[in-house]
């Protein structure tokens, strides 16, 4: 098992408030690692630290280090890092342009593709990998904003796949979706695991148990417990974990 991401003694602060405290965690290549925990437990901050989206916040500061393939992400060029670590947000954010344009947007800007034929192939492949191709293949030129929430979220996945990242971060990707759309997105996650390494932050404990290989339980900026999903859900070691996954608080 190879560690794709290794987090060493990471602490994050917003102003003076400590939101993550001395975190040590690693993400194994081609696994789905779920992070569960009540709100304010630092889950999203953790994700946004991995691809350095948090750096945009002026009151945010951090200590410690995060390694991607044993190179510190804080020494990398931000754009290069985000190309390697894609991120899916809680709400589907399609750009106000056509489905086709949405997918080729980033690859074009990053200079990954040039020819029309390459673009067409990339759009088809990404949409197929995100399980969206059959639903939209006849209307690639129509606006992405007209699709349903679930479709838009899968379009966002396709958009990430188009830049061929190594890791994909999911930040509560199904919080705004109905059960059927959620099932679709989960389906694609399990499929994507073969090629990518996935970190999934979710408020939905059941979702974590359905899709992930390992699960970490965060509380008040600390990791309370991390284990394979089966073990964590069947026989949690800590009382707090048990309380949370059985729904007694949070």
């Amino acid at each position: 098992m190879v560690d794709k991401i290794k987090v060493e003694d990471l602490s994050c602060y917003y102003g003076k408030k400590c939101v993550l405290e001395s975190l040590n965690i690693s993400v194994v290549q081609n696994e789905i690692l779920s992070i569960i925990g009540p709100s304010n437990s630092g889950k999203t901050t953790f994700l946004r630290t991995l691809n350095r989206m948090s750096d945009l916040d002026s009151i945010y500061s951090r200590r410690g280090d995060v390694y991607l393939d044993s190179a510190s992400v804080f020494d990398m060029d931000m754009e290069e890092l985000r190309k390697r670590i894609g991120m899916l947000f809680a709400m589907p954010i399609s750009f106000p342009m056509s489905i086709y344009e949405n997918i080729v947007y980033a690859p074009k800007r990053l200079g990954l593709i040039f020819k029309k034929s390459e673009q067409d192939a990339l759009v088809e492949q990404s949409l197929k990998d995100a399980f969206l191709w059959n639903e939209v293949k006849d209307r690639l030129k129509s606006s992405a904003m007209k699709m349903s929430g679930g479709q838009q979220q899968r379009l966002c996945i396709a958009r990430i796949l188009a830049i061929n990242p190594e890791v994909i971060l999911f930040d509560e990707p199904c919080s705004g979706l109905d059960p059927i759309s959620t099932a679709r997105v989960e389906e694609s996650m399990v499929e994507l695991k073969r090629k990518y390494t996935i970190v999934l932050v979710t408020n939905n404990v059941k979702q974590a148990s359905r899709v992930s290989d390992r699960t970490a339980f965060f509380l008040m900026g600390k990791i309370i417990e991390i284990d394979t999903t089966d073990k964590l859900f069947v026989s949690p070691k800590k009382k707090q974990t048990e309380d949370y996954i059985t729904g007694r608080f949070g």
Binding site: N51, E79, G86, M87, F89, I93, F95, Y105, A106, C156
Partner: peptide, 27 residues
């Protein structure tokens, strides 16, 4: 122009100016 558009673009590895040029300004 919603801030989320910018974030979504940055998260794809697209730089600041390119985001402004192709997402923010047109909208």
């Amino acid at each position: 122009v919603p801030y989320s558009f910018r974030e979504a673009s940055w998260a794809l590895g697209v730089g600041r100016w390119q985001t402004i040029r192709h997402i923010v300004l047109p909208n």
